[in-house]
């Protein structure tokens, strides 16, 4: 019992450290505008949105084990819907809720069609559906602004119920992005701790086995996809007023590669993997911004190196280190190993 208590204390300490660390990061991010240029502020803001997008992608990929190649299009849907709402005089909350609803509806449509297939076919269908969103955004001039996109998206004030928060400049909206992005991140963290996610991770390990436990795997994946689409669209909605501009390429297939690569870079196994990956990705992007096409090569080489050295991503590397140090302290498992013949399965 005392061991259990010690464990609980350790958990508590870890949790306190975690919350304190998260708060410190948020405060640091809020301070960014006071010591850097507006250009960097914009880049940090879009990195926050990328983190939310990567985390949303990880719900279906990291936990669900299903690769979607059209995830950026859901981000774009959220961006456009929020942009159109704001440009038509609606408030920030209206825009965000509309973006979320649009994400759920479009995501449910994606899932309905794509989940009929599995594996690579699922991936290709999501790619095709993402491209449909891209083409619609590109062609539907009256609503989306066509090729040049939708500009002038701005949030000047946010109604907080008791008071109204005035946003006089871009830095102020950047701070909103940090706080609301952190809320989304927190919501996804809570989601990652649910029984739903645990069972979802089991479907990733072995979907036939989960079905043999009586779980409706299709329903589980469907719900996971919709959750994933919701947060992707919310990330897009949050992003739209940041630069004031949304354009079709936000949803193109190459944009969908970004959350995938970020997740692989950081590690899909843990909650923080995509966060680390998206931040890394943003950093690489920022520091190679003047190198033109060389940046693609540099990004590629870094990715290749990480995936070769640490197939589980950067957080996977940490887990591996932890596990090996734990295993060193544990007596061998030979005592429980059977010497019996372990072959001999006929089908």
């Amino acid at each position: 019992m005392s061991i259990e208590k010690a464990d609980r204390n350790k958990d508590l300490v870890q949790r306190v450290i975690g919350v304190a660390g998260a708060l410190a990061v948020i405060v640091l991010l809020l301070l960014v505008p006071s010591f850097t240029s507006q250009y960097i502020v914009f880049n940090v803001g879009s990195a926050v949105c990328s983190v939310v997008l990567a985390l949303s992608f990880n719900i279906i990929f990291g936990y669900g084990g299903v690769v979607s190649f059209g995830h950026a299009s859901l981000f774009a849907v959220g961006g456009y819907v929020a942009g159109i709402s704001l440009n038509n005089g609606h408030g920030f909350w209206f825009a965000m809720i509309a973006a979320g609803i649009a994400g759920v509806v479009v995501g449910a449509g994606f899932a309905l069609v794509a989940l009929r297939a599995s594996g690579i076919y699922f991936a290709i269908i999501t790619l095709a559906m993402g491209q449909i969103v891209f083409i619609v955004a590109q062609q539907w001039n009256e609503v989306t602004g066509g090729i040049s996109g939708l500009s002038g998206i701005d949030v000047t004030s946010i109604n907080l119920g008791v008071t109204t928060l005035e946003l006089p400049n871009a830095d102020a909206y950047y701070r909103v992005v940090v706080v609301v992005g952190a809320l989304f991140l927190g919501a996804m963290w809570l989601l990652s701790r649910t029984r739903f996610t645990r069972l979802l991770r089991a479907t990733r390990d072995d979907d036939v086995r989960v079905a043999a436990l009586g779980l409706n795997v299709y329903r589980w994946r469907f719900v996971a996809f919709v959750w994933s689409a919701l947060f992707a669209a919310l990330a897009g909605g949050l992003y739209a007023p940041l630069g004031g501009l949304v354009y079709p390429e936000l949803g193109r297939w190459d944009a969908s590669a970004e959350p995938i690569l970020a997740t692989l870079l950081g590690g899909s196994g843990s909650f923080w993997g995509p966060v680390v990956g998206a931040v890394m990705f943003a950093l690489i992007d920022f520091f190679t911004r003047d190198l033109n096409s060389l940046r693609v090569i540099i990004t590629g080489v870094i990715l290749l190196l990480v995936l070769l050295v640490a197939p589980g991503g950067l957080t996977g590397l940490r887990d591996r280190f932890r596990r090996s140090s734990r295993a060193a302290g544990v007596p061998g498992r030979d005592d429980t190993k059977t010497t019996a013949d372990v072959g001999g399965t006929d089908v």
């Binding site: 645990r198 390990d205 072995d206 086995r209 436990l213 009586g214 399965t345």
Partner: peptide, 23 residues
């Protein structure tokens, strides 16, 4: 199953709890 089919990346306890939670 003929080959012991369990969730490899989960602990023994998690496997049991998953079965219960699935139910």
């Amino acid at each position: 199953f003929q080959i012991g089919r369990v969730f490899e990346t989960f602990t023994v306890g998690d496997n049991l709890e998953l079965a219960h939670e699935a139910r």
